[in-house]
Design a protein around this nucleic acid. Structure first.
Length: 473
RNA sequence: GCCCCCAUCGUCUAGAGGCCUAGGACACCACCCUUUCAAGGUGGAGACACGGGUUCGAAUCCCGUUGGGGGUGCCA
């Protein structure tokens, strides 16, 4: 058996693509790449009511953004109904399936209290033919157990008595996902099914179907990866949790950081390293080492990783990755401004964790007039009015004729501070607010050099004016 | 209700019977570095859910309890 493994990622387009799906896709992809197998994309769109075309596009976009390229597909289940029909017919023929005319209400009404609920086999021996409002059910063998042999969890047993004759074809004629799943997995030669743990309870049904339809094809190996949960330890939900991959993209997370963080949820490399590039992940990842317990998607740690990956970018790459944010900012894209931005970029790069933080950090350099943050003004200027005025006035004079470079600025401010008995950290504070509008920000002297002497002097003089005004009040 | 899964610092994890006084990372705190903020460095606080076994020895194996989660749909 030198068969290369074939795995599939089979999302259903019933909502935006989320981080849990991304992790499942990643695990599949890593497994395939490591063993030189095939990674197949299959869209499970058999739910006529909830599927939307834009969600399908969302899947492609997400996978492309992450760089999880697929070798085959995308297959669409909605285009393969004949196959499912054929399988269903075979089951009927073999006596493994039967039509049922019970409505949901009928089933519920007959369900026994305090026991295994669900369908009671009412139509099992009625020998009904097809018809409107009739669904097809699989005849579950009443006794025995089905064992799921899971790579991550080992052997998991399910007694047949614990589940009902489940529906495999809806009365609309559409297949239920377990059926479609089995048929496609067999048809596509899938060897390993790697998916979320929420599918574990339906796996025995799939195995039963598989054995009935494809007695000669070996059942794939299963690997149910632990769920991703929220802070309340519940399965991540598209509706209540901030899990849309696209949102992370839009906030300025890098795909590399996302993948790196995701791979660490439920798996860890043998040594202590946590920062891994794709090649390292491919080489070291192994399904057998995947954890059993659910993990919390912790944005804080993701942010930390993103910061690492941003700092690791070349200045050039960083600048071009900032473009979307620059485009939607108020900053005009003049060549002058672009040059200023590229000079600021290296300073910014080391201080952001997501790209969305970039623009607020550099805006001061482009505005005609700085917007002064009131709290900063209070704290760094007003609190010691007289000192601030002295610092601002003196520096204005000195800056008039100073060599306009970081070193000179540094020295001259140090001198001003010494005369007033202040440390540089104190001295620079009021200048910083006057020029950048904020008490925290990029290295001041570099910023000053980049935006130029004229603007700096103008802003200092404005600050002096304002201070004097407030002093006289 | 019934079925199934899971259980190490707040979080992600290392740990496959003695190497554990339980290691690392994020977050947190302190200090250092420093023109602010970051980054970096040093240090600190912080966990084996509980109860029984098995064993000379258990975070590691078994059983139970408790807790959490998932499934139970003519959704996937």
């Amino acid at each position: 058996m030198n068969h290369k493994p074939r795995v599939r990622f089979a999302p259903s387009p019933t909502g935006y693509f989320h981080v849990g799906g991304a992790r499942t896709a990643l695990f599949n992809w890593l497994f395939a790449r490591k063993l030189k197998g095939s990674f197949i994309l299959r869209i499970e769109d058999t739910d006529e009511e909830r599927n939307k075309p834009e969600w399908i596009k969302g899947i492609y976009d997400a996978l492309n953004w992450l760089g999880l390229n697929w070798d085959e597909g995308p297959y669409r289940q909605s285009e393969r109904y004949q196959l499912y029909k054929k399988a269903a017919d075979k089951l009927i023929e073999q006596g493994n399936a039967y039509y049922c005319e019970c409505s949901k209400e009928d089933v519920a009404a007959r369900a026994l209290p305090n026991s295994t609920p669900g369908y009671d086999g009412f139509c099992r021996d009625k020998n009904l033919g097809p018809g409107p409002k009739r669904a097809l059910r699989f005849k579950v063998p009443p006794i025995g157990v089905t064992v799921v042999d899971d790579i991550i969890r080992g052997q998991v047993e399910f007694a047949h008595s614990s589940f009902e004759d489940f529906i495999i074809v809806k009365s609309s004629g559409g297949p239920i996902f377990v059926l479609a799943n089995v048929v496609d997995d067999a048809d596509m030669g899938i060897t390993h099914i790697i998916r979320g743990e929420e599918h574990l309870p339906t796996t025995p049904k799939a195995i039963l179907l598989w054995k009935a339809i494809y007695p000669d094809i070996p059942i794939p190996r299963y690997a149910h990866v632990p769920l991703l949960v929220n802070e309340k330890r519940q399965k991540l939900s598209k509706r209540r949790d901030p899990v849309a991959l696209e949102d992370y993209k839009n906030q300025g997370y890098l795909p590399e950081a996302m993948l790196n963080y995701l791979v660490l949820l439920g798996w860890a490399p043998k040594d202590g390293r946590e920062v891994l590039n794709l090649d390292e992940m491919i080489n070291e990842f192994s399904l057998e080492e995947v954890n059993l317990s659910p993990s919390f998607f912790d944005v804080k740690k993701l942010r930390h990783f993103n910061g690492i990956y941003i700092r690791d970018l070349s200045d050039k790459d960083f600048i071009s990755l900032c473009e979307p944010w620059l485009n939607t900012s108020k900053i005009e894209k003049t060549s002058n401004n672009l040059e200023t931005f590229s000079k600021l970029a290296p300073l910014v790069k080391q201080r952001v964790e997501v790209l969305g933080q970039v623009i607020p950090m550099v805006e001061f350099a482009f505005a005609d007039e700085v917007e002064i943050d009131e709290k900063s003004w209070q704290k760094s200027v007003l609190k010691n009015k007289d000192l601030s005025l002295a610092i601002l006035s003196e520096s204005f004079e000195k800056f008039l004729h100073l060599d306009w470079d970081v070193e000179s600025l540094h020295k001259s401010l140090e001198e001003i501070g010494q005369n007033l008995g202040l440390k540089l950290s104190k001295t620079q504070a009021s200048i910083r607010v006057a020029i950048t509008g904020n008490s925290v920000g990029l290295p001041l002297f570099d910023s000053m050099v980049i935006i130029g002497r004229d603007i700096c002097l103008l802003r200092i003089s404005k600050a002096i004016e304002r201070l004097k005004l407030e002093l006289s009040d």
